[in-house]
Design a protein around this nucleic acid. Structure first.
Lengths: 103, 103
DNA sequence: TCAATAGTTCAATACTAGTGAACTATTGAA
DNA sequence: TTCAATAGTTCACTAGTATTGAACTATTGA
């Protein structure tokens, strides 16, 4: 059984969040989650179809351990949801500002 | 003669900026520069005195190549100044928001 | 000319990212 | 029940990046 590691709101660090969002692929994953405003499976939120599954899995792990997303199992899929409230509570306006940057 | 690499305003990337600020030591360097609101030498802006010179030099290089600071030679020292205008023009409010985050 | 100062560059080691292959867990059909 | 398909994870390998001591460069001042 796979156990997901999720930091508590207090454990979320600025360095972790910035580091997680410093990768263009991970930023696209987060933007997809914001655009859909809903749970998405890993493959649904994949930034590009040719990416290796293991690479994608690794990106989701980094986002999860940084506290940006929460992952839960639902059948054969993993449902990912943005932890918007937690991030906003910890670092006000940070997410919105980063996501509204060009590129 | 040492040549410093500075990206133009247009060449500054979000991933580069976030990656540069994702390190606690580099974030402290940038905060020092903001607090002083002036040029600082590398040793003046050093986040902790016991850090190796080469490590410090590497951190300044990363900040420089990300477009966060501009370095110029002044005598035996290197003077570093935050490229606040360039960053603000490229990514509005980003710097201010990140720097006002706790921790 | 020589020592001190401020950084950079180099080389070595240690850690981190990307990826194919193998694995696990769930579902649905025969 | 059994078996194949699906969705991710974990492992092992390679390649790139960070940290640091040592050696080097450039400037200043005695």
């Amino acid at each position: 059984m796979v156990q997901f590691v999720h930091p508590s709101r207090e454990e979320i660090t600025l360095a972790g969040v910035l580091g997680a969002l410093a990768d263009p692929m991970r930023l696209r994953i987060v933007k997809s989650l914001v655009a859909q405003n809903a749970c998405m499976s890993c493959t649904e939120a994949a930034p590009c179809p040719e990416m290796a599954k293991s690479t994608l899995s690794n990106h989701f792990r980094i986002l999860r351990e940084a506290g940006l997303i929460r992952t839960s199992k639902q059948g054969v899929q993993h449902r990912n949801v943005l932890r918007e409230e937690d991030i906003n509570a910890r670092f006000p306006k940070l997410l919105k500002t980063i996501l509204s940057c060009p590129e």
